[in-house]
């Protein structure tokens, strides 16, 4: 378990990083926290020809509120996001989900942008971004590009990021009046989710009037499910719609039927909790 050979670059500015990435093409891989890429390299499942280490690029880890939008830099580490008062105030869904992300030492090093760019189907943060209606801001030598989270995640480990682009930050709209809900089911604490659900719901007068949700660990990628969201708002049994809508993954420890079942369990739990909170 040692990585295959690679070349290594450690840019200190964004421009430098983007230039290296553009020259490296498909064979270049950005290295953020490395908490997923490094194991994949150790197993030689990932074998980038060029690693572009982003850890010394200045200014990519800022967390700030600007114009009513919470901006979290791509290189912000999970532990920093988890502990940040602005995040707790403006996007309380994130700390709830981050508590479930792996373990403390992983959270000390892993980054928000790394997790989103990898798009592991079981990862919590992509589902959160979908539920938060976040915008993923990408940069390339040609400039910035903004992609809604719902369009960013495209499949198993597949995103809208082009190989010459880097994640700069996410932008999360303020959600005053919205209630967050997150839970996941995993065999052990910190494991990737067998199924997880992130929900943002706006509730008035004891009912849900607007909802956005994203599953993790269930399908190849998180996505909005308008019919389910509509059912939530209509006060209908949203969970019963899932079998017709979801295409759950299967694995040795978690067959597809089980993941679908868990998705329904989570959606019912979310519905109950949100109604109770409304």
């Amino acid at each position: 378990m040692t990585p295959a050979r690679f070349a290594y670059a450690r840019p200190t500015t964004l421009e430098e990083a983007l230039g290296i990435l553009a020259r490296g093409g498909e064979e270049a891989a950005p290295l953020a926290g490395g908490q997923s890429l490094m194991p994949m390299m150790a197993m030689r499942v990932a074998r980038p020809a060029l690693l572009v280490d982003l850890n010394r690029v200045a200014g990519l880890d800022a967390i700030a509120l600007e114009g009513g939008v919470l901006r979290i830099g791509a290189m912000a580490r999970h532990a920093a996001v988890l502990a940040h008062p602005l995040v707790a105030a403006e996007a309380p869904l994130l700390p709830r989900a981050l508590e479930e992300v792996a373990h403390p030492a992983i959270r000390n090093r892993g980054t928000l942008g790394g997790s989103l760019a990898l798009a592991d189907p079981a990862a919590e943060l992509p589902a959160c971004m979908v539920a938060l209606d976040a915008t993923i801001v990408l940069a390339s030598a040609g400039g910035e590009r903004r992609v809604p989270a719902a369009d960013f995640f495209q499949g198993l480990y597949a995103t809208a990021r082009r190989s010459d682009e880097l994640l700069l930050r996410v932008e999360i709209p303020r959600a005053a009046g919205w209630t967050p809900w997150f839970a996941e089911v995993a065999r052990r604490r910190g494991d990737y989710a067998l199924a997880g659900l992130a929900v943002m719901a706006r509730c008035t007068a004891g009912r849900i009037v607007e909802a956005r949700l994203g599953f993790c660990g269930v399908e190849a990628a998180p996505r909005r499910l308008p019919a389910v969201e509509a059912a939530l708002v209509a006060g209908e049994d949203a969970a019963s719609r899932l079998p017709a809508l979801l295409e759950p993954l299967g694995s040795a420890e978690a067959p597809a039927g089980y993941r679908l079942h868990l998705a329904q369990v989570l959606l019912r739990r979310a519905t109950e909790a949100l109604h109770a909170a409304a």
């Binding site: 290594y8 490395g34 490094m38 373990h103 030492a105 992983i106 090093r109």
Partner: peptide, 27 residues
């Protein structure tokens, strides 16, 4: 384990406890 699961390699890097098998020496 060399793949970031077991925690036997923990070290402090700039004060933070991290998995030593998931950081390159050059970093």
């Amino acid at each position: 384990c060399a793949h970031g699961v077991c925690g036997a390699c923990h070290i402090r890097l700039d004060g933070a406890v991290v998995r030593g098998c998931l950081v390159l020496a050059v970093q």
